[in-house]
């Protein structure tokens, strides 16, 4: 840290456990529309990384193509970023995290990027349980091409042009649970508290975190008749359980009633505390999670919260049994076998 000889005129700026200020987590100025839900999500990512004391240089931020995928430029300027091709961020993230599994990966996608062109890669990412925080900034429309429906638009939802969507929405959360993701939740860009808790828990998780964050598009999908508008989401949100989070470095023992709260110990020792709002809901039960999601859909409600968590299943990196150091920087003597190995192989082909 820079020091000066003069006495500070203002109180020392607030820092996190690494001694970094919130400003160290900021990115470039956003070029998205004013009021876009995506900007609020970028803010929460900054808050979560700052509060969790993640060093920005230890983060990989990745995205596909679309409005959502522009947003990694707008947070964590000190982290390497990769804006890849449409719908194919999962494969780039997979390669990058295999090359250096010591990094924290965060991938930002949109509903078009995930649920249409990228559905194949999305499915296989969930299946592998790669340690990656995968965020869908979900607004139900294509923004950069000016307002066509995406595959997460609900049946009956209306475009500004009056066109009604007649195809069922792809339920990315139910899919993610089914396919093997080990942390699946939905939040709303307008719900600061819930989203921040979920992001912090996501940072603590070892495996694929799939967060579907409803993030209204103020330009193309925030009108009467839309099911992804601020108003509609506020009116139809149904939380499955309040999300609390106690990081491993906070030495606070929080009392809770096991009758009303689910406590999940995370990989890094943090605790995820889920207050039961739906009677008998068990976030470690896949079948129950999918059932709750489908029932909410039938009721026309937007279910939010952490639907499913499995803090024990080995991640893709664990199952590959990789050397602990990053593969990317292993020295030559670790990756080029000695001369006698070649001699032995040549001998076998004589």
């Amino acid at each position: 840290m820079a020091t000066t000889l003069e006495a500070p005129k203002t109180p020392a700026p607030k820092t996190n456990r690494l001694g970094l200020q919130a400003v160290d987590y900021r990115g470039a100025k956003t070029t998205l529309c004013a009021g876009c839900g995506h900007n609020a999500i970028s803010e929460r990512i900054i808050d979560a990384m700052y509060e969790m004391g993640v060093k920005p240089e230890r983060v990989l931020k990745l995205s596909g193509i679309g409005c959502s995928s522009k947003s990694p430029t707008y947070f964590l300027g000190r982290a390497h970023g990769f804006n890849s091709v449409h719908g194919r961020m999962p494969s780039v993230a997979t390669g990058a995290l295999l090359a250096n599994s010591s990094m924290l990966g965060i991938g930002v996608s949109g509903d078009g990027d995930t649920a249409s062109i990228g559905l194949g890669q999305f499915a296989h990412l969930m299946r592998r349980n790669l340690p990656l925080i995968y965020i869908i900034e979900d607004n139900g429309v294509y923004g950069l091409t000016k307002g066509q429906f995406s595959a997460t638009a609900d049946v009956g939802s209306k475009l500004k042009t009056g066109v009604i969507n007649e195809l069922p929405a792809i339920n990315t959360c139910a899919m993610a649970v089914d396919l093997g993701a080990t942390f699946v939740g939905r939040s709303f860009s307008g719900d600061k508290k819930q989203l921040l808790s979920m992001l912090k828990a996501a940072i603590a998780h070892n495996g694929t975190v799939m967060l579907d964050v409803i993030s209204p598009c103020v330009t193309f999908n925030d009108h009467e008749g839309s099911t992804k508008s601020y108003k509609y989401v506020q009116e139809h949100e149904d939380s499955i359980g309040e999300v609390g989070f106690v990081p491993f470095f906070d030495d606070i023992s929080v009392d809770y009633d096991p009758g009303t709260t689910y406590d999940v110990q995370m990989h890094d020792g943090s605790h995820l505390k889920l207050r039961k709002l739906h009677e008998g809901y068990d976030p470690t039960n896949r079948i129950g999670a999918v059932k709750a999601l489908m029932e909410a859909e039938e009721r026309g409600e937007i279910l939010t919260g952490v639907f499913y968590i499995d803090a024990k299943r080995p991640s893709f990196i664990d199952s590959l049994n990789l050397a602990p150091e990053p593969l990317a920087t292993l020295p030559q003597d670790r990756v080029r076998p000695p001369r006698r190995v070649l001699d032995e192989i040549m001998q076998a082909h004589l």
Binding site: L62, A96, L98, L322, A323, L327, V335
Partner: peptide, 29 residues
């Protein structure tokens, strides 16, 4: 412990995407 990772990808698009992601992060992919 392995000093390599092998992934059978879901298709060739993913296979080359992983190669480029890994190359970007410093692997020989």
């Amino acid at each position: 412990k392995a000093t390599f990772a092998v992934v059978q990808a879901e298709d060739e698009l993913a296979a080359v995407g992983m190669v480029l992601g890994a190359g970007w992060a410093g692997a020989r992919s």
